[in-house]
């Protein structure tokens, strides 16, 4: 039932690191550009806040990429449809080979970005959009080339490229939203600006899932396999879509209204719970389908459900603890 092995776990963590640091770079770049255009210092602060998320993703990615490159393995790659594609040893080797200079560049640029952020803040502010933008492009390239088919124009290569890249838009952006939501919990002056961005980030998440659907159509005919894992992943995809359709858009609108009216205290306690449940379902669902990409489980459908529900309850509890933690004390403005 538990088909988790260390090499596959390493590969998942590489993908997780790419998603988190790639999304932090993308939205860091957007906020830095917005700050330059509008002259509003709050956008610059939001860009700065993303540095901590970037550092976390950057460390997870670099550590695991080097572990992975030194202890090469060839796991199955699953799409979010539960469709299996087995990359050849050559494809994975080529991926690591092609990515070696890119990962070296990412490390140099990442260290420069972090160094300037802590020791040359004015210089960092001046070039933040360039640094974030370059990092986003590099992480995108690494994601796209992490498995390289012999024919670069083949459907298989298109699948690898789109499937690995979309995590930046989906999983990474979902984590970015949750992180910024909590990080600005007491920064009331930031909320109006941040929440106004949530619909844009949501749009990118929807587009990201669409990219994954497209990538799956490319290999569907050759790689489709119907089992409990496939059916469960399909269920989770449906939950993500329904949760997003019913709640995300409305919650975004309500948050914007509350932030503009500065009347957070008027939020209905039941509504606060709905927001927490929706957020927990969203992040656990994205983590679930990304995690299950890398493993082959022999569990039954209901067993997957058991673990998933336990994870949602855990996420909801952690959210409550973090919310209490961030809500304590005077507003930082």
């Amino acid at each position: 039932m538990l088909g988790i092995t260390y090499p596959e776990l390493t590969r998942f963590l590489i993908q997780f690191g790419i998603a988190v640091s790639g999304a932090a770079s993308l939205w860091g770049c957007v906020f830095a550009l917005k700050s330059r255009k509008s002259g509003e210092v709050i956008y610059e602060n939001l860009s700065s806040l993303l540095m901590w998320l970037f550092i976390a993703g950057f460390l997870i990615f670099t550590f695991n990429w080097w572990i992975g490159s030194l202890f090469l393995f060839v796991p199955d790659i699953f799409a979010h449809e539960g469709i299996v594609v087995r990359p050849s040893v050559d494809a994975v080797l080529r991926g690591f080979e092609l990515n070696m200079p890119l990962v070296t560049l990412i490390m140099l640029l990442g260290i420069l970005n972090i160094h300037w952020f802590f020791y040359y803040k004015e210089l960092w502010k001046k070039y933040a959009s360039v640094l974030w933008g370059a990092q986003f492009l590099l992480f995108s390239a690494v994601a796209a080339l992490s498995a390289a088919a012999p024919d670069f124009l083949s459907r298989l290569q298109m699948f690898f490229t789109l499937h690995n890249w979309h995590s930046i838009l989906t999983l990474g952006s979902v984590i970015t939203v949750d992180y910024l939501f909590l990080a600005t919990f007491r920064l009331h002056s930031h909320k109006k600006f941040l929440y106004a961005f949530f619909p844009i980030i949501s749009l990118f998440i929807w587009i990201g899932l669409g990219i994954d659907f497209l990538s799956n159509f490319l290999i569907f005919e050759d790689a489709f396999r119907l089992d409990d894992q496939f059916l469960f992943i399909q269920t989770i995809v449906a939950i993500i879509i329904i949760n997003g359709a019913i709640l995300s858009g409305r919650i975004n609108e309500l948050l914007i209204n509350f932030a503009e009216l500065a009347k957070r205290e008027l939020i209905d306690p039941l509504l606060k719970k709905v927001i927490a449940v929706s957020g927990s379902v969203s992040i656990v669902s994205w983590l679930t389908i990304t995690f299950m990409d890398f493993f082959e489980f022999s569990a039954k459908y209901w067993q997957f459900w058991g673990v998933y529900l336990l994870a949602v309850v855990t996420a909801y509890t952690i959210h409550g603890i973090l919310e209490s933690f961030f809500a304590n004390g005077e507003p930082a403005h």
Partner: peptide, 18 residues
């Protein structure tokens, strides 16, 4: 407020998920 203003895109997403 959660029940108000249903957008067309949301109807399609809901139909897709279901």
């Amino acid at each position: 407020e959660l029940m108000a203003k249903i957008k067309l895109s949301e109807i399609f997403f809901l139909a897709s998920g279901l």
